[in-house]
């Protein structure tokens, strides 16, 4: 049954992707991309990757789509007819595709437990991590402890994205006069619903943040969800009101603080005589050390992701606001 669902979902995914190629209406293209992301999240669940599905749904289908729509508001929704020839790209793509197909010919069978991937390295994560790291969620163990340096790099990538967006788009507070016009002031239903929903979203974000050790979730997803709550607030009540809640300067400090918090765990373990990010050394008991270490670095991840995602949204929407005034 699961196999059948898988086949159907994959076929739908392929159809969506092919449709994107030929559509000229960019709004539809972006909506289809959102669908594409959600479909792939479903496939990820079907393939047992619940954490990945969670992230893809919140990041790929959520934040990416919002940012794309924000860009579209500034650039116009129609793609112009393409005059130049599409022959060369087709050749390049076909060569790449042929190489990939050639590569699949020796690939191990799908789902076979004897595949090399399941024989080397991974068994230790599956068998030992509940004892060595002490968490039931192996993905969190590997992410935060065994491959903690990758995750630090990833937080730095997010931070680098903030630097890039800020160097391109500046965030400016609007004057009081604009505040009355922005947002969806006249929609009372939206106001009431948003006021009900936003605290729940933030609560859910906190749950995802601190429950990531046991179930799917963790700092990334929590950061994105918390940012989504404030994005909703900014959309309904207007950008100036959102600035009043969390200002841009404060967000910059948060983004830096998250990275530094993560790294400080590593520095502390160096101080205690271990290698960088060796959580075993940060408490008397190795298991307790792992636990503290993972909680703190996940918090660092959550803070940075939240601050960066929200700042990027601020940057995009203050561009939109400015172009509306013009």
């Amino acid at each position: 049954m699961a196999e059948l669902i898988n086949l159907v979902l994959l076929a739908m995914l392929a159809l969506t992707a092919l449709r994107i190629i030929f559509l000229k209406d960019l709004f539809a293209v972006i909506m289809l991309f959102g669908i594409f992301s959600f479909l792939s999240a479903l496939i990820f669940i079907n393939l047992d990757a619940v954490d990945v599905a969670f992230t893809e749904a919140s990041v790929g289908a959520g934040i990416s789509t919002v940012l794309m729509l924000g860009t579209l508001a500034l650039t116009g929704r129609k793609e112009k007819a393409n005059s130049h020839s599409s022959f060369l790209p087709l050749v390049v793509v076909c060569i790449t595709g042929a190489a990939l197909i050639y590569g699949t010919l020796d690939m191990p069978d799908f789902g076979d437990p004897d595949n090399p991937v399941h024989q080397h390295v991974a068994p230790r994560y599956i068998e030992e991590s509940p004892k060595e790291v002490g968490l039931p969620n192996m993905v969190t163990s590997v992410l935060a402890s065994y491959r903690g340096f990758d995750t630090l790099g990833e937080v730095v990538v997010v931070f680098a994205a903030l630097i890039a967006v800020l160097s391109l788009l500046s965030i400016r507070k609007e004057t009081e006069q604009d505040a009355s016009e922005s947002g969806l002031k006249s929609h009372h239903v939206l106001h009431v619903v948003a006021k009900l929903v936003i605290p729940l979203i933030i609560l859910f974000a906190l749950y995802v943040q601190f429950h990531g050790d046991f179930g799917p979730g963790g700092g990334f997803q929590a950061g994105v969800i918390a940012a989504a709550a404030l994005i909703l607030y900014a959309l309904v009540f207007g950008l100036p009101n959102a600035f009043a809640v969390i200002g841009a300067k404060f967000l910059y400090c948060m983004a830096s603080a998250g990275v530094l918090l993560y790294a400080s765990v590593g520095l502390f373990s160096m101080y205690k005589g271990g290698n960088f990010l060796d959580y075993n050394k940060i408490a008397a008991e190795p298991l307790a050390g792992q636990h503290y270490g993972i909680i703190i670095i996940e918090l660092g991840v959550g803070i940075t992701v939240f601050a960066v995602m929200l700042s990027i949204f601020y940057a995009f929407s203050s561009q939109t606001a400015r172009s509306n005034i013009k």
């Binding site: 990757a49 990041v59 934040i63 940012l67 794309m68 990833e154 890039a164 788009l169 990027i312």
Partner: peptide, 30 residues
């Protein structure tokens, strides 16, 4: 259990992907 390592790698890659997307879109706006 399914193999957790590819999941971890892809979690990282998704976040890297959204970071690149954000930068690309900001460039488009400019």
């Amino acid at each position: 259990y399914s193999n957790p390592l590819p999941h971890v790698l892809i979690l990282t890659a998704i976040v890297v992907g959204v970071a690149t997307t954000a930068v690309g879109l900001a460039l488009i706006v400019r």
